[in-house]
Simulated scan of single mutants.
Amino acid sequence: MAKRYPPNTRAGNRDREATAVVVDAAFGDGQLNAAEHHAAATAVAKARTLDQLAAVVADLQGAVSPPVDRRRPPKRPVPWFAAATVVAALVVGGGAYSLTHRDPAAPRSAAATAVLADPEPLVIPTPFMASADGIALFRDRFREKFGNTVVDEVSFTESSAYLSMAVPGQPNRKISYSFRGGFGVSGELESRKIDTPTVDLDDIDLGALQRTLEEIRTSVNVPDAQVYYISYADEEPPSLHISAKNSFGEGGYVITTASGELVRASAFSD
């Protein structure tokens, strides 16, 4: 049985990443709203120990278990009958090969080789979603699918986006979607106040956002910080929450208006 680490053990990057997946999933299925998701993501980035990570997801469905001992497990002995079966198979296979294998009468033509070769894989690049390019792609795909660019709230991570919005034609119902190259319904329909504030993706000044992202390392006082989370919701005024951290979990966040005006910044300090 794998050994469990004590709760006060230092957390590693893989521990933070596993916890962040649970936080993202909880937001995607409606357990957390955008503000709660932002707070949880920030707490994960700042967590130093396993018990601090566990506290972030303690009340969430699908919470991660404490990491196990990462030492390589001992090799399991191979049962004698399994080993015997493998040996027998090799003997029989070798005999069959010697009986049936013959040198080809003529080398295979180049044309035949070309026909039999595996086709080159088709690679369709997808931008990092928590970026100006990622938000631009999401906005265009959202417009194509829904005919507008209005949502209640939306957040962007490395490879995904999550949003909630009024059901078309039913302003008293809310539906959530996840986006990973395409849209998928996430969770059940929920009640929604008809006067719920909304935000328009078209209002985001992507040029101003790009400048904010380029200056994020200075803003959060971490020279090697990378943006990993952006959310957009109506907080009087509608605001973008931009979080960044490095591989040690050192980071902070910046809040701006949709047009790029600074609202608040939280920088890392030792």
Rank of each mutant, 00 (worst) to 15 (best):
residue 151 V to H: 03
residue 264 R to D: 12
residue 236 E to V: 14
residue 100 T to L: 13
residue 141 R to C: 00
residue 138 F to R: 02
residue 2 A to S: 14
residue 248 F to R: 14
residue 195 D to V: 14
residue 15 D to C: 06
residue 9 T to E: 11
residue 82 A to S: 10
residue 175 I to G: 01
residue 107 P to F: 10
residue 223 P to Q: 08
residue 27 F to Y: 15
residue 168 P to R: 10
residue 171 P to M: 10
residue 78 V to D: 08
residue 208 A to L: 03
residue 44 V to C: 01
residue 180 R to K: 11
residue 258 A to D: 01
residue 85 T to C: 13
residue 191 S to T: 12
residue 122 L to I: 14
residue 193 K to Y: 01
residue 63 A to M: 11
residue 222 V to I: 10
residue 189 L to A: 01
residue 70 R to Y: 08
residue 199 V to W: 03
residue 49 T to M: 02
residue 223 P to G: 05
residue 260 G to F: 06
residue 135 I to V: 12
residue 187 G to D: 04
residue 138 F to K: 07
residue 97 Y to W: 15
residue 202 D to R: 07
residue 46 K to W: 07
residue 247 S to W: 10
residue 61 Q to R: 13
residue 6 P to S: 11
residue 2 A to Y: 10
residue 74 P to G: 13
residue 101 H to M: 14
residue 1 M to A: 14
residue 262 L to N: 09
residue 164 S to V: 05
residue 142 F to N: 00
residue 197 P to C: 06
residue 5 Y to G: 08
residue 171 P to A: 12
residue 177 Y to A: 02
residue 87 V to T: 07
residue 156 F to R: 08
residue 264 R to G: 04
residue 178 S to V: 14
residue 131 S to D: 04
residue 172 N to F: 02
residue 149 T to G: 01
residue 188 E to V: 13
residue 163 L to H: 00
residue 154 V to N: 00
residue 85 T to S: 15
residue 227 V to C: 05
residue 53 L to C: 06
residue 154 V to Q: 01
residue 97 Y to T: 13
residue 184 G to N: 11
residue 60 L to Y: 00
residue 227 V to P: 04
residue 208 A to I: 02
residue 20 A to K: 07
